[in-house]
Amino acid sequence: MFLGRVGLFIPCYIDQVYPRVGMATVRLLEKLGVSFEFPEDQTCCGQPQFNSGCFKDAAKLAGKMLRIFKDYDWVVCPSGSCTGMVREYYELLLERDKESDDFKHLVSHTFELCEFLIDILKVETIDGSFPHKVGLHQSCHGLRGLGLGVPSEQVLPGRIGKVRRLLESLRGIEIVNTGRSDECCGFGGTFSVFEGTVSSFIGRDRIKDYEQAGAEVIVSYDVSCLMHLDGLIRRDKKPLKVLHIAEVLDGAAS
């Protein structure tokens, strides 16, 4: 399949704090035979600023993103949240570019890793095994913003969602069902700092959901949620582990 130029968009916190997630993404794409580039000039999509209401600051970073990625046929990102930022909210930031072809192309061709695999590469199964009980954490931005699944409050078909279907193709994996199937983890970007107490309270409730469902590992397509959950798990010395879905798929696929 000829894809043209694929640009790898690695969110700032993955670059600086979770390189293992970035590298898992790299290896996974390589295993799937995708050739891609990592434009070194990229830094951050502007979500922290946007999320805090600093649209002007966010717009500078959004503009930078547009310049960096406009010439790629596809942009792939191992984060639902940052992908959602580009797809859902850049129109609020780049008012002047909104009608340009570059802008429209970027917004319509930026994909979260799983949906790139499923919708563009048409990967239906991953050959590999992951014999663990997994709690799938569908981050809100991926779930509702990108439509990676159908949130529990909506009356639409497709509740299982594509990410879960992809994971379920792994041998030995057991995806546990939590009481509140898609409750927010409480991270919320700068919310986690501005409202630390509520954020942590929500997070602990979410962890309890996964514990009670018997999960050994919490898997998500958003490391930001996982960073928050993992911080709570380690503080409370719980045996749960967190993994980005790229790590799971890369580790399982030989």
Binding site: G231, L232, R235
Partner: peptide, 21 residues
Amino acid sequence: TIWGRSRDLPKMPAQSFRAEY
């Protein structure tokens, strides 16, 4: 620290992704 009040910070890697890549 606001983050650290109830959560641990992630363990910091030695290198960034771009360096590893």
